[in-house]
Simulated assay, not measured.
Amino acid sequence: MARNLLKNPCGEEQLEFWELTENGGSQWKVEDMPGDSGYDFCNEEVTKYFATSFELCLKRQVIDLLAEGYSCEQLDAQPAITVEDWYCGRTDCGCSYEITVCLLDENHEVIQDFKPELVNLDPDCDDCSWKQVSHTFSDYGSGLRFISFEHGGQDTKFWDGWFGVRVTGSSVTVEE
């Protein structure tokens, strides 16, 4: 199985390794599964998640593929790159979730990106259980050297505290 290139994908080390690109409201927080008004995760090894607040919270990691041991030749062969993320809402407050993953060249210019539409979760019409988003990049051309992974969101009622989207179990893998 390919190794996950994201460090601290489930919050076991609080916010270590993540760059907080938006840290609004009560800011990012790590909580224990399942949390208030939440659901257990489908993998019992995952015991924590990142919680967002009433203003936009986004966090990012930029993966240096050469530093991770890949050669230019390996990367120019365009191996499949798979990104996965898990998100959920609370049963008592609506929220929004977003993710943007970019394949970058040596100058950090975007080669290809994955940015699905904003997801809005409403506990009145959604069970707010954990959902997975997944995407595989292929046929993106040569020059890949970095991957930027950014995700987050906020609550939709602007409640003080951590009532926004929850994220965990993120991964970025390169097909070997």
Rank of each mutant, 00 (worst) to 15 (best):
G25V: 11
H151E: 11
E13S: 14
R3D: 12
P116S: 05
D127I: 01
T21Y: 00
E19R: 12
V174D: 00
D105V: 04
F17K: 14
V46E: 07
S129Y: 09
P116M: 02
Y70N: 00
D113E: 15
S148F: 09
I63A: 03
A67G: 02
I147Q: 02
W86L: 11
D85H: 07
E175D: 15
Q27K: 14
W86R: 11
L15M: 15
C42T: 11
M33W: 00
K29M: 11
V101F: 06
V62N: 08
C93F: 04
I63V: 15
V101N: 02
F41Y: 15
C88K: 10
V165R: 01
Q74D: 09
V167D: 03
D76H: 09
Y97Q: 04
E13N: 14
V167F: 04
Q78V: 03
S71V: 08
V30E: 01
D64G: 06
V30P: 03
F137M: 02
L103G: 13
F163E: 08
S96C: 13
P123M: 02
D40Q: 06
R90N: 08
N23D: 15
Q61N: 06
F137W: 10
F50W: 05
G69L: 01
V174T: 07
E150S: 12
G152S: 08
C125S: 14
N107W: 02
